[in-house]
């Protein structure tokens, strides 16, 4: 394995008993990478995350993690019970492993939580109930929880799913900052224009890796059709590809 590689997938095939959801997938997550995995529902994106996390094992092929590589995971905001009785500080502290028998946090743990919340700009929200946060603050809280484990690689499942445009911008900026600080990030997304087009590296996935490269190489009609099974047009705007879904035509117009 290259010294730069954090996790490497070699000829990985994986499934849940029936037809494989991933076939012969090769991918290397390098230190400092910032990669988006795009693909339709059921294309194997979440399974890929599980393999990278090590919670699932491939049926064929190998997943190799560099020794000492810590991987953290941020779930989709939509899957979380925001009414759960917990504060921002308590939520972040959950990720801190402890061998102590007593349940309350030590002074050292409190300092660690305060530092990571401060780094993400939400230090003043530590005592707030999680329901009181905005979408961007919720994402920051989960990233803070993930960072508490001091990972080299951060995996995120649809980080901008269900959020508005301003929150999406906020999340993109935050991830960019973390990546510039040296954190490798791999995220899944459905959002080609709002998310994928802004990332430095993309993987188009539909059971197999269809294409891998820069947005200019991946967001092209041929790759999109093979990935999503639908014809899409791609325009250029300010040097970035913009996907136009023209396949359905214009509805509700007589004649």
């Amino acid at each position: 394995m290259s010294t730069e590689a954090l996790v490497r997938l070699d000829h990985v095939t994986f499934g849940y008993g029936g037809e494989p959801v991933l076939k012969d997938v090769n991918h290397v997550v390098e230190a400092g990478a910032f990669t988006g995995v795009v693909g339709p529902s059921g294309s194997g994106k979440t399974s890929l995350l599980r393999l990278l996390l090590g919670t699932e094992q491939p049926q064929h092929g190998t997943v190799t993690r560099a020794p000492g590589t810590a991987v953290s995971y941020v779930p989709q905001l939509e899957t979380v019970n925001w009414n759960f009785p917990v504060t921002v500080g308590e939520c972040v502290l959950m990720a801190r492993r402890t061998r102590r028998v007593l349940p309350w946090a030590t002074a050292e743990e409190k300092t660690e939580v305060a530092a990571v919340l401060d780094r993400l700009g939400i230090a003043d929200l530590a005592r707030r109930h999680i329901r009181e946060l905005s979408g961007g603050q919720q994402q920051r809280m989960f990233i803070a929880r993930a960072l508490l484990r001091r990972p080299q690689l951060l995996l995120m499942d649809e980080p901008t799913s269900g959020v508005d445009v301003a929150t999406r911008h906020e999340v993109l900026h935050l991830l960019d900052e973390l990546n510039r600080d040296g954190l490798a990030i791999l995220l899944t997304t459905h959002d080609l224009n709002g998310m994928a087009a802004h990332l430095p590296h993309l993987v188009a996935l539909n059971t197999r890796v269809i294409a891998s490269g820069s947005p200019a190489e991946v967001i092209v009609p041929d790759v999109l059709e093979r990935t999503f099974g639908a014809r899409m047009e791609v325009l250029q705007h300010l040097g970035m590809p913009v996907v136009v879904d023209s396949g359905a035509g214009r509805l509700g117009v007589a004649g």
Partner: peptide, 22 residues
């Protein structure tokens, strides 16, 4: 309101403040 969503894991999150694009 507190008790109603005790075991709910499907709430859509609130929206966020504004930020600029990269």
């Amino acid at each position: 309101r507190r008790a109603a969503g005790m075991d709910d894991h499907s709430d859509v999150p609130a929206v966020a403040p504004v930020a600029a694009v990269r």
